[in-house]
Amino acid sequence: MTRTINIHTAKLKSRKQMEKDIPRHLWGWWHDVCPGQTLTMRDATASDLERCIRNPEASTDPADYLCELPADGSLVIKAAIQHIRTVSVPIPSNAQHAGAV
Rank of each mutant, 00 (worst) to 15 (best):
residue 1 M to K: 10
residue 1 M to S: 11
residue 1 M to G: 10
residue 1 M to E: 10
residue 2 T to I: 12
residue 2 T to D: 05
residue 3 R to I: 01
residue 3 R to F: 00
residue 3 R to Q: 11
residue 4 T to D: 03
residue 4 T to V: 11
residue 5 I to H: 05
residue 6 N to L: 01
residue 7 I to W: 01
residue 8 H to T: 06
residue 9 T to H: 02
residue 10 A to S: 15
residue 11 K to F: 02
residue 11 K to E: 11
residue 13 K to S: 00
residue 13 K to E: 12
residue 14 S to K: 12
residue 15 R to Y: 03
residue 17 Q to S: 05
residue 18 M to C: 01
residue 18 M to F: 04
residue 20 K to L: 10
residue 21 D to V: 06
residue 22 I to D: 01
residue 23 P to T: 08
residue 24 R to H: 13
residue 24 R to D: 10
residue 26 L to K: 06
residue 26 L to M: 06
residue 27 W to K: 02
residue 28 G to F: 02
residue 28 G to L: 15
residue 29 W to P: 09
residue 29 W to E: 05
residue 31 H to D: 02
residue 32 D to Y: 15
residue 32 D to M: 03
residue 32 D to R: 15
residue 33 V to F: 13
residue 33 V to C: 08
residue 34 C to D: 04
residue 35 P to I: 00
residue 36 G to P: 09
residue 36 G to F: 11
residue 37 Q to K: 15
residue 37 Q to W: 08
residue 38 T to W: 00
residue 38 T to H: 07
residue 38 T to F: 01
residue 39 L to H: 11
residue 43 D to K: 08
residue 43 D to H: 05
residue 43 D to V: 02
residue 44 A to H: 03
residue 45 T to M: 09
residue 45 T to I: 11
residue 45 T to E: 08
residue 46 A to E: 13
residue 46 A to V: 12
residue 48 D to H: 14
residue 49 L to Y: 10
residue 49 L to C: 07
residue 50 E to L: 09
residue 51 R to E: 12
residue 52 C to I: 04
residue 53 I to R: 13
residue 55 N to C: 07
residue 56 P to T: 07
residue 57 E to Y: 13
residue 57 E to V: 13
residue 58 A to I: 12
residue 59 S to A: 06
residue 60 T to S: 14
residue 60 T to V: 14
residue 62 P to Y: 06
residue 63 A to L: 03
residue 64 D to F: 01
residue 67 C to F: 00
residue 67 C to T: 12
residue 68 E to A: 09
residue 69 L to T: 15
residue 70 P to C: 01
residue 70 P to R: 04
residue 71 A to L: 00
residue 72 D to K: 07
residue 72 D to H: 05
residue 72 D to C: 03
residue 74 S to C: 12
residue 75 L to T: 11
residue 76 V to G: 02
residue 77 I to T: 05
residue 78 K to P: 03
residue 78 K to H: 00
residue 78 K to W: 03
residue 79 A to P: 00
residue 80 A to C: 15
residue 80 A to M: 14
residue 81 I to C: 10
residue 83 H to L: 04
residue 84 I to V: 15
residue 85 R to E: 12
residue 86 T to N: 01
residue 87 V to S: 06
residue 88 S to T: 04
residue 90 P to M: 05
residue 90 P to S: 09
residue 92 P to I: 06
residue 92 P to S: 01
residue 94 N to M: 07
residue 94 N to L: 10
residue 94 N to A: 13
residue 95 A to W: 08
residue 96 Q to Y: 04
residue 97 H to Y: 13
residue 99 G to R: 04
residue 99 G to Q: 04
residue 100 A to F: 02
residue 101 V to K: 09
